[in-house]
Deep mutational scan, measured.
Amino acid sequence: MATKAVCVLKGDGPVQGIINFEQKESNGPVKVWGSIKGLTEGLHGFHVHEFGDNTAGCTSAGPHFNPLSRKHGGPKDEERHVGDLGNVTADKDGVADVSIEDSVISLSGDHCIIGRTLVVHEKADDLGKGGNEESTKTGNAGSRLACGVIGIAQ
């Protein structure tokens, strides 16, 4: 089992970053940390998408990683996509320092995120509470600013 993974985020604009993942036990939580720069100040949706395909930019990554066919939600919700990591918060300089621990994603097994795409979005994720159909699919997080395929790390 891989215990570490990394993702280099890039987009068409100024947004870029490096996100690290570490899972010490196969059924334990995954620590997610790193930094994203070039964002507007505020909240930005942060999700693992189904495919590791960036051939047409971030759009070819498909929908959120959702092997259990659930509705979109927040990272602490029972009803959520596996890939729903909530929001990252950018400061006035456009930098989001990421520090998350998640017990639904994994670096092995059915919820493995390796080979899938991590995406940072234009807007805040409403965590499935926006009151419309799009909220239950995407959290109304808007366009995909930057993305990268999650790969095994040393």
Rank of each mutant, 00 (worst) to 15 (best):
V98W: 03
K129S: 10
S60M: 08
D102G: 03
G86H: 01
G131S: 11
D110H: 14
H44K: 02
L39E: 00
I18G: 05
V15S: 06
E133N: 05
D91N: 12
L145S: 10
G13V: 08
H44D: 04
T40G: 12
S35R: 14
V95K: 10
D102I: 04
D91G: 15
T138K: 12
Q23C: 02
V98I: 05
W33K: 12
R144L: 13
E78R: 13
Q16P: 05
T89F: 05
N54K: 09
K137V: 05
V98K: 00
T3G: 12
D110M: 01
D91I: 02
L118C: 05
V15F: 04
L9P: 02
P63V: 12
T136W: 05
V88I: 15
N140I: 09
S26E: 02
V32K: 02
K4V: 11
G45V: 03
V32H: 03
G45K: 02
D126R: 04
F65M: 08
A96Q: 03
L85Y: 00
S108D: 12
N20A: 05
E78K: 05
R116H: 09
L68P: 04
S106Q: 08
V30A: 01
A96S: 08
K123G: 09
L9A: 02
V48A: 02
S69C: 09
T136R: 05
D102H: 05
D91A: 14
T3S: 10
I100V: 10
H111P: 07
K129V: 09
L43D: 03
G52I: 05
G128M: 11
V48S: 01
E25F: 07
E22L: 13
I152L: 03
T55S: 14
L107N: 04
K4I: 14
G86T: 02
E78G: 13
L68R: 14
G38C: 02
R70Y: 11
D97A: 11
D12Q: 11
N27M: 06
S69D: 10
F65W: 13
S108I: 13
T136G: 07
E122G: 10
Q16R: 13
A124T: 10
I152M: 15
G57N: 15
D77K: 04
S69Q: 15
A141Y: 09
D125W: 07
H121N: 12
L118Q: 04
K24R: 12
S103T: 12
S103I: 05
K71N: 15
Q16Y: 08
I18A: 04
G131R: 12
N132W: 11
N87W: 14
H111Q: 14
T40N: 10
G45P: 13
G38P: 00
A5P: 03
L118T: 00
G42C: 08
H64G: 01
L85E: 02
G139W: 05
G148L: 01
L39G: 01
K129P: 05
E41A: 12
H81N: 13
A90G: 07
K71E: 09
K4A: 14
I19P: 02
A90T: 06
G151L: 13
A56E: 11
E78S: 12
I36A: 01
L118K: 01
E133A: 13
S60D: 13
N132E: 10
T138P: 15
N20W: 13
S35H: 11
D12M: 02
C112N: 06
N27V: 13
E122L: 07
V32Y: 03
A56W: 04
L39K: 02
P29G: 07
F65A: 09
K137T: 11
I18S: 09
K10Q: 09
V120E: 03
V82H: 04
L43A: 10
G131F: 14
G38I: 02
V30S: 04
P63Y: 11
D93W: 12
D126M: 06
I113G: 02
I36K: 02
A141F: 14
K31A: 07
G45Y: 00
D97K: 06
T138F: 07
D84M: 08
L39F: 00
N87F: 14
C58W: 08
W33I: 07
K76H: 13
V82I: 12
L43K: 09
E101D: 06
G52R: 10
K137W: 06
V95N: 15
I113P: 01
H44F: 11
G148M: 00
S135V: 05
Q23L: 00
E22W: 09
V48L: 08
G62D: 09
A5V: 00
D93S: 13
I114L: 07
S35V: 14
Q23E: 05
H47K: 05
F46V: 12
D93N: 12
A61F: 14
Q16S: 13
I113E: 02
C7G: 03
H111G: 10
R70T: 09
A96C: 15
V149E: 05
G57A: 08
T40A: 11
G62R: 07
V8K: 10
D102K: 01
G148R: 01
H47I: 01
L39I: 03
S135T: 07
E101R: 10
K4D: 06
E122P: 01
